[in-house]
């Protein structure tokens, strides 16, 4: 009887722990990184990824047709619209939106977890950046957001709450390396 009680008690603890354990969001390398809006934010992301020696491929203009989802274990979209960047790429905001949505759809269809990042702060918020983020948010499994980007209107916090997905904040751009290290287990 005593043995049965101990087993029952152990199972109960395991069950309760299983139910209430906080789900930890993790990602696996290699990562695919692209820009959504052609600001230099995506390049900043790659500099931070280099700091933590993450295995990644960066293609700022990758199309869904050319994207091989089998080659990666996750996809990161760095959102930030830049008129200069779009001009340099010879595309407009509508073409860019269509490109990233098709890319995200293909990644999702192939089971890749998708992360949306906004790391350039309030200065990179605006109608086009917000449009891109909102178009991509249905595909997102997690958000990496600079605190300053969210401070004025909590747009990113609200998206994370509505979609019930984790949101990781960082204060300074270089602090993003801590978030990457945490979720990739580096």
């Amino acid at each position: 009887m005593k043995k049965v009680s101990v087993v029952f008690f152990a199972l109960a603890i395991f069950f309760v722990g299983f139910v209430f354990a906080e789900e930890v969001f993790t990602l696996e390398q290699p990562a695919f990184i692209t820009s959504a809006g052609q600001s230099p934010g995506a390049l900043q992301m790659t500099v931070v990824c280099k700091m933590v020696k993450l295995d990644y491929t960066f293609e700022k203009l990758m199309t869904a047709d050319d994207f091989d989802p089998q080659a990666y274990n996750c996809a990161i979209f760095v959102v930030g619209a830049s008129g200069k960047g779009l001009g340099a790429a010879g595309i407009d905001i509508d073409e860019e939106t269509a490109r990233v949505v098709a890319l995200a759809q293909k990644a999702k269809d192939n089971g890749l977890p998708i992360v949306l990042t906004h790391l350039e702060g309030a200065a990179r918020r605006g109608a086009s950046s917000d449009l891109l983020f909102n178009e991509l948010s249905p595909f997102a499994d997690a958000l990496f957001i600079k605190e300053e980007s969210d401070a004025a209107d909590q747009m990113f916090s609200n998206i994370a709450e509505e979609k019930e997905i984790p949101i990781f904040f960082f204060e300074k751009t270089a602090d993003l390396k801590n978030v990457i290290s945490e979720v990739f287990g580096l």
Partner: peptide
């Protein structure tokens, strides 16, 4: 990145528009 880390000043980076 260094500017933000060392001074807390945040400047936006832009790439020259080719056109």
């Amino acid at each position: 990145l260094n500017l933000e880390l060392e001074t807390g000043i945040n400047v936006k980076l832009e790439e020259s528009a080719k056109n």
